[in-house]
Amino acid sequence: MSSPLAVSGRVAWWGTSWLRGHIVADQLLDALLTDSVSHLVSGLGEGGPEPILTALARLRALGATGFGAALPAEGDPVGLGGPAEFNAEALEVGEAVIAIGAGVGLTPRAVGPTYEWHARPAAPRQLPDVGEADRALRTALLESARDLAALDVARWRPEVADRLLNLRHVVPLAAPPGVPARCVDLAARALQALEIVDLALADDGGAITAAEIAARRAALVVLERAGRRALVAACSPEVWPPS
């Protein structure tokens, strides 16, 4: 079972589904091991690192009711609620998982074929709700398409122009039972937006002047932010609508 979701998003979706009894442990592990051979978690027990399934079971015993993703960036710590030590570590790696109700956050680092997770205390967070994130993403896509057209995107990145003209073609995502269909759709469109940003910024040599490079980046700032926030909302059970 392959998924384009970041590992924090996969833990959020499949971990929550497992926690709530929708899937069994083997299905959870299948989802997490698509790009790795193991996941080890340190900082929860008194011993050394433990397998992620053991760690998630420990978090369940601590009161976890679900797992939510955070995808912070400089100036936009979306999905984080503190404290400062946890926020700094999550910002450094660009993602984290929050054990909702357990007061614990996990940050991943890929070390060879293994993900090594570090647990720290984490505070409750404020999140955009799914409807708000959806509306912001739709608006950002329209505004970015307009701004990039004014910058003649078709000249320097024809594939980006093609994607913007074909926004209705969204690659469907695999999701476990229990994730609302609206969140699955929102996550797919958020990933589409972030892919457009990556493609558009892939070759600054295509712009003639520094001013054009700056204008291109400015046209994508709002879309990148909206894409991350939409993905966090879609991967955060605290704000899921009833499925």
Score class of each variant (00 low, 15 high):
residue 1 M to N: 10
residue 2 S to W: 11
residue 4 P to S: 06
residue 5 L to W: 08
residue 7 V to Q: 11
residue 8 S to M: 04
residue 8 S to H: 08
residue 14 W to S: 09
residue 16 T to N: 07
residue 17 S to G: 02
residue 19 L to M: 09
residue 19 L to A: 12
residue 19 L to N: 12
residue 20 R to M: 00
residue 20 R to G: 02
residue 28 L to S: 03
residue 30 D to A: 14
residue 31 A to E: 07
residue 37 V to N: 11
residue 38 S to P: 02
residue 39 H to W: 12
residue 40 L to V: 13
residue 41 V to M: 06
residue 41 V to T: 04
residue 45 G to F: 06
residue 45 G to V: 11
residue 47 G to S: 12
residue 47 G to C: 00
residue 52 I to M: 09
residue 52 I to Q: 07
residue 53 L to M: 10
residue 53 L to K: 00
residue 55 A to I: 08
residue 57 A to G: 11
residue 61 A to V: 10
residue 62 L to E: 13
residue 62 L to V: 01
residue 63 G to S: 05
residue 65 T to D: 05
residue 65 T to P: 01
residue 69 A to V: 00
residue 70 A to E: 01
residue 72 P to H: 07
residue 72 P to W: 08
residue 76 D to M: 08
residue 76 D to E: 05
residue 80 L to T: 02
residue 81 G to K: 04
residue 82 G to E: 10
residue 84 A to H: 13
residue 89 E to W: 01
residue 90 A to R: 04
residue 94 G to D: 02
residue 95 E to C: 04
residue 96 A to I: 05
residue 98 I to L: 15
residue 99 A to S: 03
residue 104 V to S: 00
residue 104 V to E: 06
residue 107 T to E: 04
residue 107 T to N: 04
residue 109 R to Y: 06
residue 110 A to I: 12
residue 113 P to V: 15
residue 113 P to W: 10
residue 114 T to H: 10
residue 115 Y to F: 15
residue 115 Y to V: 05
residue 117 W to P: 03
residue 122 A to F: 05
residue 124 P to M: 13
residue 124 P to A: 12
residue 127 L to F: 08
residue 130 V to D: 01
residue 132 E to L: 15
residue 134 D to E: 14
residue 135 R to W: 10
residue 137 L to S: 08
residue 139 T to L: 12
residue 142 L to V: 15
residue 143 E to N: 09
residue 144 S to G: 07
residue 147 D to Q: 15
residue 152 D to C: 09
residue 152 D to G: 04
residue 155 R to D: 07
residue 156 W to G: 07
residue 157 R to V: 06
residue 157 R to C: 13
residue 157 R to Q: 12
residue 159 E to R: 09
residue 159 E to A: 09
residue 161 A to Y: 02
residue 162 D to V: 11
residue 164 L to Y: 04
residue 164 L to I: 09
residue 169 H to P: 01
residue 170 V to Y: 05
residue 173 L to K: 01
residue 175 A to R: 04
residue 178 G to M: 01
residue 178 G to R: 00
residue 185 D to K: 14
residue 187 A to Q: 04
residue 188 A to M: 02
residue 191 L to N: 07
residue 193 A to L: 04
residue 194 L to C: 07
residue 195 E to D: 13
residue 199 L to Q: 08
residue 200 A to N: 06
residue 200 A to G: 03
residue 209 T to K: 12
residue 210 A to L: 11
residue 213 I to D: 08
residue 214 A to Y: 09
residue 214 A to L: 14
residue 218 A to M: 14
residue 218 A to K: 14
residue 219 A to Y: 08
residue 220 L to Q: 05
residue 224 E to G: 14
residue 226 A to G: 03
residue 226 A to N: 05
residue 229 R to P: 13
residue 230 A to G: 15
residue 237 P to W: 08
residue 241 P to F: 11
residue 242 P to Q: 13
residue 242 P to G: 12
